[in-house]
């Protein structure tokens, strides 16, 4: 009787698959879906993936703050789009204040075809490609680089090194600084991706070969869009199936590849290794 009930429940869930080992199916479409709110996603199917707390490496979290995510995918033989949805009652998109952390999610692929390196950030000689969508970058794109004046609209400053006197309460973006003045913005001068005020994507592309090795790629060719819709983050990450970049995984239609997911809840102070990952590690992505 119990079994029957479960079966009936599964059937009632329609196209959502609840299999013990979830498989995400990426169906072929004509035009790639870049907007998470596009109604065409309804036809793409969805897979529920339970999440687990990262507690292997310190720092970690004790319990998953996001119990599960819903993943859909489509491709058009050129690009692949992956949609990740999860419940988060608070929108956290500020990283321009010392005690604030932002929501984010990431998708991970194995770079070497046919391999399944350690699903936690890969392993030496087993590189992974990580695409991280950041709520903070989404806000930068929508409203301009979020800086001190956005965090503290009433702040006062006389001047910064090598800049002219700052008109009080004026917007004084780093992009308007002379090259010399920009040298005093250490992270920017050092070439840190995070410090670059000129954002053209909300997705950062990185590689890793184990804990602590995450490195931003020289060529950034992923795009994305995230929308908070009635307390659900709906995020689409789009990348070329074959970007021609040697540090990216090559994805081919007609193949099944391993993929892993991570979600961060900024309101709980999650960042870096304090995160939720797809329970069991790699999930199968069937690119039809």
């Amino acid at each position: 009787m119990k079994k029957l009930l479960v079966l009936a429940f599964l059937l009632a869930m329609g196209s959502i698959s609840f299999a013990a080992e979830p498989v995400i199916t990426s169906g072929a479409v004509k035009d790639i879906l870049t907007d998470p709110m596009d109604p065409a996603w309804d036809g793409a199917g969805a897979t529920i993936i339970p999440m687990a707390p990262q507690n292997v490496a310190t720092p970690g979290i004790k319990a998953a703050s996001v119990p599960s995510i819903k993943v859909s995918s489509v491709h058009n033989d050129k690009d692949i789009a992956i949609k990740v949805e999860w419940y988060d009652s608070t929108v956290n998109d500020a990283v321009n204040m010392s005690d604030k952390f932002a929501d984010a999610c990431a998708v991970q692929f194995a770079v070497k075809p046919g391999t399944e390196p350690n699903f936690m950030m890969g392993e030496p000689n087993g590189p992974v490609q990580i695409l991280q969508w950041k709520a903070a970058w989404e806000k930068d794109l929508a409203k301009g680089y979020q800086d001190v004046e956005q965090a503290y609209p009433n702040y006062n400053v006389d001047t910064y090194p090598e800049t002219k006197a700052v008109p009080q309460k004026a917007n004084y973006p780093v992009t308007s600084f002379s090259p010399n003045a920009q040298k005093y913005i250490a992270g920017l001068a050092a070439g840190n991706n995070l410090s670059n005020p000129l954002k053209n994507t909300s997705v950062e592309e990185m590689n890793a070969e184990g804990f602590g090795t995450l490195t931003a790629q020289a060529t950034q060719n992923a795009k994305g869009k995230g929308v908070s819709d009635y307390r659900y983050w709906k995020v689409v990450i789009v990348r070329p199936l074959d970007s021609g970049d040697a540090s990216d995984a090559v994805l081919k239609a007609g193949s099944t590849v391993p993929v892993a997911f991570t979600v961060w809840d900024g309101s709980k102070g999650e960042r870096g290794a304090r995160k939720n990952f797809s329970d069991g590690g790699w999930v199968k992505l069937n690119i039809q």
């Binding site: 990283v95 321009n96 204040m97 010392s98 001190v148 965090a151 992270g187 995070l194």
Partner: peptide, 22 residues
């Protein structure tokens, strides 16, 4: 910009830069 150092330093001597986010 994880600020693990800010959290861990008992003297609170690392500081987060609000502009560079590191």
């Amino acid at each position: 910009g994880y600020r693990e150092c800010v959290k861990a330093c008992p003297y609170k001597k690392p500081f987060y830069n609000n502009t560079t986010r590191v």
